[in-house]
Amino acid sequence: MSLHADAWSTLASWRPDYYTQEALRQAFLGYLAARPDACQRSCAAGHITASALVFDAGGEHLLLTLHPRVGKWVQLGGHCEPSDSTLAGAALREATEESGIADLRIDPVPVHVDVHPITCSLGVPTRHFDVRFAVRAPRGAHPVRSAESLDLRWWPVDALPDEDGELDMMLAVLR
């Protein structure tokens, strides 16, 4: 199965609890139907990305990265690569690369979706159609910051550095 087919299948079978998430899910499906290149970074109109909400083993802390382009603390994740065959696999790959943590476990059912404008590696304004998954780190996991991050650290889920409320909104969906 191709990544595009997996993205379609994953989003077609997901049933979010919130109306706004359902509206975005429908928009993602429409975008995938209209754009066979929707999962490719080269799709300048916008492309599907995959993110991971990485929780510690006890679920009490969330691993966040200080993103150099965005300038704020966000979940781990990024572009799908040609070698990715599933969205969950892309999110897990990104989480592993950006955290340095082995043996992460992912729930393959999305927990949240978002569309946001960004100037990414294409160097032109575009949109990320981000599909987000919950990931659990093994007990005693120690993250190692990658070159893609200015900082990387565990934050208590009840004290996140969340200026715009986006992280709290994602966690509310999980609760």
Rank of each mutant, 00 (worst) to 15 (best):
M1C: 09
S2T: 12
L3R: 13
A5K: 15
A7W: 09
A7K: 13
T10Q: 10
A12Q: 15
S13A: 13
P16L: 11
D17I: 12
Q21L: 14
Q26K: 15
A27C: 03
F28W: 05
G30A: 11
Y31H: 05
Y31V: 02
L32S: 12
L32I: 15
L32F: 14
R35W: 00
R35Q: 08
R35M: 00
P36T: 06
D37Y: 02
D37A: 12
A38T: 04
C39K: 00
C39E: 02
C39N: 06
R41T: 13
C43I: 00
C43N: 11
A45I: 02
A45Y: 07
G46H: 02
T49A: 12
T49C: 07
A50H: 05
A50D: 02
S51N: 11
A52E: 01
A52C: 04
L53H: 13
V54N: 01
V54H: 02
F55E: 07
G58F: 04
G58P: 09
G58W: 00
L63R: 02
H67P: 07
P68S: 05
G71D: 13
Q75F: 00
L76H: 03
L76I: 01
G77P: 04
H79F: 03
E81H: 15
E81Q: 14
S83L: 14
T86C: 07
T86L: 00
T86H: 06
L87E: 12
A90E: 10
A91L: 08
R93H: 01
A95N: 04
A95F: 08
I101Q: 08
D103M: 08
D103A: 09
D103Y: 10
D103G: 03
L104P: 06
R105A: 04
I106T: 08
D107M: 02
D107T: 03
P108F: 05
V109P: 01
V111T: 09
V111N: 01
V111G: 03
H112K: 03
D114M: 03
V115T: 08
V115C: 07
H116I: 07
H116R: 14
P117E: 05
T119Y: 06
T119Q: 13
T119W: 08
G123W: 06
V124R: 12
P125L: 09
R127Y: 15
H128S: 07
H128W: 08
D130M: 07
V131H: 04
R132A: 11
F133C: 04
A137Y: 09
P138I: 00
P138N: 03
R139F: 11
G140Y: 07
A141L: 09
A141E: 10
A141V: 10
P143I: 08
V144D: 09
S146K: 10
E148R: 13
L150K: 08
R153D: 03
R153G: 06
W154N: 10
W155I: 03
W155K: 11
V157D: 07
D158I: 14
L160A: 04
E163L: 10
E163H: 15
D164R: 09
G165R: 12
G165Q: 09
G165H: 11
G165T: 08
E166H: 13
M169L: 14
M169Q: 15
M170G: 03
M170P: 02
L171S: 10
L174V: 10
R175T: 11
